[in-house]
Design a protein around this nucleic acid. Structure first.
Lengths: 225, 225
DNA sequence: GCAAAAGTGTTGCGTGTACACCCATGC
DNA sequence: GCATGGGTGTACACGCAACACTTTTGC
């Protein structure tokens, strides 16, 4: 390992990343959790995360921990850092600061198993999670708020869905994230007015009247920050 | 110094805070910079900042560095963490991750001098700063964007002004942050409709017609974290 | 009385919201 | 033919942007 030349006043802190990874399952917004295999908080559920390596970008560390601890195969469709948690006593092992990330996993990310250091991995209702280790309940809460505000501007909801999807499915994603019902007509009007969706022409068979399929237009690029 | 029991895989990184502190001077949005006294980037201007101490909250570290390096006396009226910069090569001394903070200093924070480790401190136009050390130009840019989005919702602009102020003064703050002119009538209508301002009755003498003085209503709370 | 800055209203447009019925399909 | 979910339009409220003249003071 390379030796560093940090100034003497640099406190020795551990730098970690934690990831709140969301996906839609059964019309509900779910969050990916792992069951810790080691102390502290052994057997307690927690957000996947771990220590950043020396020459690793923060978002790379987040991706790596997500893969290592949950054995997911699909790449997240969205990944952003959203807050850094650094209260001195947040981790009993010492001073550990965590850069928290928000991830969106695409539809179909169902199978998860425990990975290195974890007993298990699984999906849980994002708005009503089980008891969580460390300050992860706070982290999750803030992740949800960020997800909600992101939804207003961007086309982030599309990242939860497969290539083609129906408008009722898209509305379900919005309703799951915002935790409230939306008006069908207003929702359609608003979404179609944005010009991000193009009609895919085909139809999908279900129980009632078949829904029209859409896909995201290639020009879905507007990240007006 | 207390010995920590960090897990072996915890990379040894330095944890720093940097502060983009803004104030209004001469109808312009200004940012507080310090001239570095040590390598690397000696004599180059930079955002005030430094290493977090072991048992210190992140925002406390930000406040401490601000005071130590710039000798300001007034407390910031707003302080929030807004992004964490962690590119592996952002600091030539080694892996140093910086939790960047946004601060608003009240009107009257004029005198600043260099402090420990800095040659000088001074105010610079926030939208057109001098060359900056490390990745501080990026940090400042993101701080400005955050300031602009904060302005929409909150009463953050009030933090730039003294106890009592006039509507033209408040409009100047908004215009300086957004870097664009606003319509006087629309601005007044919008701000007064929010109910955050109460008429202070007095008047202030100037060149033309005197302006009415306002103060913030009691329900407008401070936003320092 | 004139220069300089403060103050004041109306209109149009776009956006969001409330709200109820018909349509296409499987069984 | 009926149960199931998909699809459609209008009317009102609200917020935002555009726009020009009068008022109060100092000199």
């Amino acid at each position: 390992m390379k030796t560093l030349t940090l100034p003497p006043q640099a406190a020795q802190v551990g730098l970690a990343v934690d990831v709140a990874a969301f996906a839609m399952h059964e019309s509900e917004l779910q969050v990916l959790l792992v069951q810790r295999g080691t102390l502290p908080h052994a057997q307690v559920w927690a957000l996947p995360g771990g220590f950043v390596q020396l020459h690793e970008e923060l978002h790379e560390a987040a991706l790596r921990e997500l893969r290592e601890e949950t054995s997911i195969s699909l790449e997240p469709r969205h990944l952003e850092q959203f807050y850094t948690f650094g209260a001195p006593e947040r981790d009993p092992r010492g001073r550990i600061v965590s850069v928290a990330h928000l991830a969106v996993l695409p539809h179909g990310t169902v199978q998860v198993t425990g990975g290195s250091g974890t007993l298990a991995a699984g999906w849980f209702p994002a708005h009503t999670p089980p008891p969580l280790a460390f300050d992860h309940a706070q982290i999750l809460e803030r992740a949800l708020r960020r997800l909600q505000t992101r939804l207003e501007y961007a086309q982030l909801a599309l990242e939860f869905l497969p290539e083609t999807f129906t408008l009722p499915e898209l509305q379900e994603v919005h309703e799951a994230i915002l935790a409230k019902k939306l008006d069908k007509r207003n929702f359609r009007k608003r979404l179609l007015a944005q010009g991000l969706l193009i009609l895919s022409g085909e139809r999908r068979n279900g129980v009632g009247r078949p829904a029209q399929l859409y896909r995201r237009s290639k020009t879905a690029r507007r990240t007006t920050v």
